[in-house]
Amino acid sequence: MNQYINKFISIADFLGEVLGSNTEILIHDLTDYKKSIVYIINGHISNRKIGDPITDLVLEFMATESKGNKQFIAKYNSKTIEGRLLYSSTYFIRDNSNKIVGALCLNSDYHEVKKSLSFLTSLLPNYVDDKILSINNIKENLNSDPQELTLNKIDAIINEFDIVPSRMTTEEKTDVIAALNDCGIFNIRGSVQEVANKLQMSEPSIYRYIKKIKN
């Protein structure tokens, strides 16, 4: 664990005491995407553990915003592998050169709170529920399987183009690969093979497309 991340351990412990058992608190060390979680409190919320990989949101932020000055993303929705919706925030840990080297993440489970609210609102028919979470606005998938994370992201981007890979033109495939590159998916080992399988292309072809896009 690098020096910049180590100092956040005590902060995570503090937040764990303050926020209680309904909030998962974890720290990512981004020197190894495939086993980035180095510290976790209340891991039962997402069923993740130390040694599990980076999430799609952190990966995408690394690719798109890592050279900027944004320090955190707050109050967004995430989803566990079981489909449970969480309320999340992420603080990005930077080194002296402003490079993102880690992340401190909070994921709160309001499932029981919503059940209680549903009961209370049934007694107050004029009360309007503002909806704590929305399934249509998921920013992050909390998945402990890096291959599953990769496949989910590939499928999501391909689905945005609303055309099956076998009927895609060269330009459309270029757009798909560019979108995947922009969200950092090619930083995950094995992703080129998965993209090649999904787009019905060879791995060397994928590398040529990536090189062309970067140029």
Rank of each mutant, 00 (worst) to 15 (best):
N2M: 11
Q3N: 15
Y4T: 11
Y4I: 06
I5Y: 08
N6L: 14
N6Y: 12
K7S: 15
K7I: 14
K7Y: 05
I9P: 00
S10G: 05
S10D: 13
I11P: 01
I11C: 07
I11R: 09
F14L: 15
G16T: 04
V18G: 00
L19T: 02
G20L: 02
S21E: 14
S21C: 03
E24T: 00
L26M: 12
L26E: 03
D29I: 00
Y33V: 02
Y33E: 06
K34V: 07
K34F: 08
K35F: 04
K35E: 12
Y39S: 10
N42G: 01
G43Y: 02
H44M: 05
I45W: 10
I45D: 08
G51F: 09
D52W: 04
D56R: 05
D56F: 01
F61L: 07
M62T: 05
A63H: 03
S66L: 00
G68P: 00
K70C: 02
K70S: 08
K70N: 08
F72V: 02
A74D: 07
K79L: 07
T80P: 09
E82M: 03
R84L: 04
L85Q: 01
S88A: 13
S89L: 00
S89M: 00
S89W: 00
T90L: 00
Y91Q: 07
Y91F: 14
F92C: 06
R94E: 08
R94G: 01
S97A: 10
N98I: 00
I100L: 02
V101C: 02
V101A: 08
L106C: 06
D109H: 04
H111K: 12
H111D: 09
K114L: 11
K115R: 14
S118T: 13
L120G: 06
L120T: 10
T121Q: 09
S122A: 11
L124D: 10
P125I: 07
Y127G: 00
Y127Q: 04
V128K: 14
D130T: 14
K131V: 07
S134I: 04
S134C: 04
S134K: 09
I135M: 05
I135R: 13
S144K: 14
E148S: 14
T150P: 05
L151E: 14
N152L: 12
K153H: 04
A156R: 13
I157E: 01
E160K: 15
I163F: 04
V164I: 15
T169P: 08
T174G: 13
D175R: 15
D175A: 15
A178R: 15
G184E: 02
G184H: 08
I185V: 11
N187D: 07
R189P: 02
R189K: 13
R189C: 05
R189W: 05
R189E: 14
V195D: 02
N197D: 09
Q200S: 15
P204T: 11
P204M: 09
Y207Q: 10
R208H: 12
K212Q: 13
K214T: 07
